[in-house]
Structures are given as C-alpha cells and as structure tokens.
Simulated scan of single mutants.
Amino acid sequence: MLLLILGLAVFICVHSVRIVVPNWRETHREKNGMMQWNTRFALLTLLSLAFVIMGYMQMRLQPVWLWYPPIVVQHISALVMLVALFALGSAIVPKTTLKSKTGYPLLIAVKLWAFAHLMSNGTLADVILFGSLLVWSVVSFAVYRRRDRRNGVVREEGGVQYNLMAFVFAMVSWFAIVFFLHKAVIGVSPLV
C-alpha cells in the first residue's frame, strides 16, 4: 500500500504545480530551458507511475473488498469509458467543441475514467487509486476553469471534422481496449 500511496503522492504533486504555483513552470523553463523541465517532469512521472503500478499490483494479490459491484455496473462503466475516450480524443485533436467549451478535455477524460473504474471495482486498492485521481482531476478542473474565467480566456472552435476525428478515435480505441488491450495489459477483461 505504501508504494501505491507514494506513487500517487508524487504523481499528483508533479501534476499540480500549475494549480499551486501557476507561473513556476514558466519561470523554471525560462531559467533552465524547456528540455530540462520536460526531462525532469517525464522522469518524475515515470517513476511515480512505476510506484503506482507496483503498489496496485501488490494490493491486488490480497484484495481487501469494500463492496462487490453488480454486473450491470460494469456495462455502465464501459459506456462511461466510451465518453472518457471521446474526451481524450478531444484533448488530442485540435479545435474540438469540447476543448473550446471546457478548455480541459484531458481532465474530463481522467474524471470519467476514474469514476468508471471506481464504480466497477470494489477493493481498497481501487478506492485509493481511482478515488484519489478522481478527486485530483475534479479539483484541477475547477481551479483551471475558475482561472480561465478570471483571465477571460477564449478558445477557438473548429468545424465538425475535428469532433468527428475525436469520435473515431474514441470508437477505435474503445473497441481495441475492450476486446484486446485491457485483458492483455491489465489481465482482466471488461466484458466479464
């Protein structure tokens, strides 16, 4: 459990710099260069993800069940994941409607991903992992949106083709994850 909590703490701290100290990243980039910032950020992110994965896998060996979700919840989670993947696609593809309206579709994707996995898994490890990422993404989204409104940020919206590209990304990745990748990487099929 310690590895999981340590990994999550490092991950959340690294990804919360802009929330706590908004201009620190830009100041550091100007002083030391973008390459140094990106290298440190990537290394800390990879290290924290390694801790999260190792800690989560250790806790899965002896799960502490808090609840047993019914089968119908897994089907609902699969649909929520489709929406999460559309939000992820909207973050990747430029000028989507979701990006122009909300500004942070990647945080929406994390929120939906964490929520879907939290409701369809009932162990202590799941609550620690997905619950903490859900809380972090909700807080991050609220802070960024409030800051954007205060600063009068306006984003450009493109045409329907950008939304269509995000939708195609969501459908292709959802089918790949559901029918192949989730079982191959995680060891659990979302269809069961």
Rank of each mutant, 00 (worst) to 15 (best):
L3K: 05
L3R: 08
L4M: 07
I5Q: 02
V14P: 01
S16V: 08
V20I: 15
P22G: 11
R25M: 10
R25P: 07
R25T: 11
R25E: 12
E26H: 05
T27M: 12
T27Y: 12
H28N: 09
H28L: 14
R29L: 07
E30M: 12
K31S: 13
G33D: 11
W37K: 08
W37Q: 01
A42V: 09
L43F: 10
L46K: 01
L47C: 13
A50D: 04
V52Q: 05
V52L: 04
I53W: 10
I53E: 02
I53C: 03
Y56G: 04
M57G: 05
M57W: 03
Q58E: 14
W65E: 12
L66P: 06
W67V: 08
W67I: 06
Y68L: 13
Q74R: 15
H75A: 08
S77L: 08
L79R: 02
V80N: 03
L82N: 09
L82G: 13
F86G: 09
S90M: 05
V93R: 01
P94S: 14
P94Q: 09
K95I: 00
T96D: 07
L98Q: 05
L98K: 07
P105A: 09
P105S: 10
A109P: 00
V110M: 14
K111V: 14
K111F: 12
W113A: 07
A114I: 05
F115T: 14
A116T: 09
A116F: 03
H117I: 07
L118H: 10
S120K: 13
S120W: 00
S120D: 10
N121T: 07
N121F: 05
T123Y: 00
L124G: 06
D126K: 09
V127Y: 03
I128W: 03
I128C: 01
I128N: 05
L129T: 01
F130K: 02
G131N: 05
G131D: 06
S132I: 03
V135P: 06
W136Y: 15
S137V: 00
V138R: 02
A142P: 03
A142S: 12
A142T: 12
R146L: 12
R147Y: 08
R150L: 14
V153K: 13
R155P: 08
E156D: 12
E156I: 13
E157V: 14
G158Y: 06
G158E: 10
G158V: 09
Y162R: 08
L164H: 00
L164M: 13
F169E: 02
A170Y: 01
V172H: 01
W174T: 00
F175K: 03
A176M: 10
A176Y: 04
A176I: 02
V178H: 07
V178F: 13
V178W: 06
F179E: 04
K183D: 13
A184W: 15
V188C: 04
V188R: 14
S189V: 10
S189F: 10
S189T: 15
P190L: 09
V192A: 10
V192N: 15
V192W: 11
